[in-house]
């Protein structure tokens, strides 16, 4: 796809407005779709008591929080994917392929199985544990692959990610094995990556974390741009590469952990979305980050709409849908890289 030589303010506004329209359109459309038909007029204008208004209940209690959580999770995972790709200078990096999602899962499963239910500074312990798990795994992978000159091969990176994935997955299985029946069911459903447990509280407690991460990362997007073209060239242009890497890894892990704690490790969103958006708007992260968030939000909400309706009334966990799309996509990318 052709694009101009450089990102201008005009192209920036036009692109963001287009992705914003898609995002808003998806948020308005998705809650109306589902196995049960709802009468929108009755849902919004119904004079009856809310508890007796079935249409309003389906719309506001069952569907809307789920759509909002889906949009937030999609946005956060896409943001994290785009940032990991830039920091590791590899377009196959993503929360899922790096083992960051499974690190977050491990943290969350530890918190679930130990029944840590308290809150710390308004953040649930599950989120906090997921964040620490995500950060731990990204640091593990980064230290496995890093060399003094900052160069490393795709295969090393992917191997490190696969290894981290296996390692964390086996620890999750161990905890799973030790847990009782109710916990076990909770863990299994959650590990598949699902949005059906979404409530407004989940959305509202995750939103500030994701917005904070996004604001910091977009604010520092030019530093990330330069780092993505090489560590030493970035340093020679005055970028504090060390700080950029730290900020990037911490913030991307924060948003990954925040959503994985609620929705489980929904795979491949962070891989697919930045790729598609990069093809459309180019690699400049000042635009790529917010555009990926908007597109990623829309993408996951649409996937979840398919998951809700494909085998209705049975609801498939959305993680299965994204994995079915993401697996072939990943293979296509890998093959294209080899050619």
């Amino acid at each position: 796809m052709s694009r101009t030589a450089i990102l201008t303010r005009r192209r920036y506004s036009i692109s963001l407005a287009s992705f914003g329209l898609l995002f808003i359109g998806t948020l308005l459309f998705a809650p109306l779709v589902g196995p049960t038909h709802i009468d929108l007029h009755n849902a919004l204008m119904g004079s009856r008591d809310f508890s007796e208004n079935v249409d309003a209940n389906i719309l506001f209690v069952a569907r809307l929080p789920r759509v909002l959580m889906g949009a937030l999770a999609g946005a956060a995972l896409s943001l994290a994917g785009a940032v990991f790709q830039a920091l590791l200078r590899n377009d196959l990096a993503a929360p899922f392929t790096l083992g960051v999602s499974s690190g977050a899962s491990l943290g969350a499963v530890i918190a679930i199985s130990l029944e840590w239910k308290f809150h710390f500074l308004g953040i649930s312990t599950v989120s906090l544990a997921a964040f620490l798990g995500a950060l731990g795994s990204v640091l593990l992978v980064f230290n496995l692959v890093r060399t003094p000159h900052g160069q490393f091969s795709t295969s090393t990176l992917l191997l490190a990610g696969v290894t981290a994935n296996f390692f964390f997955a086996s620890l999750v299985m161990f905890l799973h094995y030790l847990s009782d029946f109710t916990q076990s069911f909770q863990i299994v459903r959650w590990l598949m990556g699902t949005l059906d447990v979404s409530r407004y509280e989940n959305f509202l407690s995750t939103l500030p974390l994701v917005l904070t991460g996004a604001a910091v990362l977009i604010w520092r997007a030019r530093d990330l741009n330069l780092t993505s073209t090489g560590i030493e060239s970035a340093m020679s242009r005055g970028v504090d590469v060390d700080r950029t890497q730290k900020t990037g890894f911490i913030m991307a892990s924060l948003v990954t952990g925040a959503v994985v704690a609620i929705s489980g490790p929904i795979g491949f969103v962070g891989l697919i979305v930045p790729h598609i958006v990069r093809l459309i708007v180019g690699p400049d992260l000042r635009l790529l980050l917010p555009a990926s968030m908007l597109f990623g939000g829309s993408f996951l909400v649409l996937c979840d709409t398919v998951a809700r309706t494909l085998m209705a009334p049975v609801e498939i966990p959305v993680g299965i849908i994204t994995a079915m799309l993401g697996g072939p996509f990943f293979i296509w990318l890998l093959k294209r890289k080899h050619n």
Binding site: R89, T229, S233
Partner: peptide, 20 residues
């Protein structure tokens, strides 16, 4: 040598010199 896996244009690469 410089290599980037991303599709930055020649102009974008030049503009990076304005970063500081």
């Amino acid at each position: 040598e410089a290599a980037t896996p991303f599709s930055f244009t020649a102009f974008e690469m030049v503009m990076m010199g304005r970063h500081p």
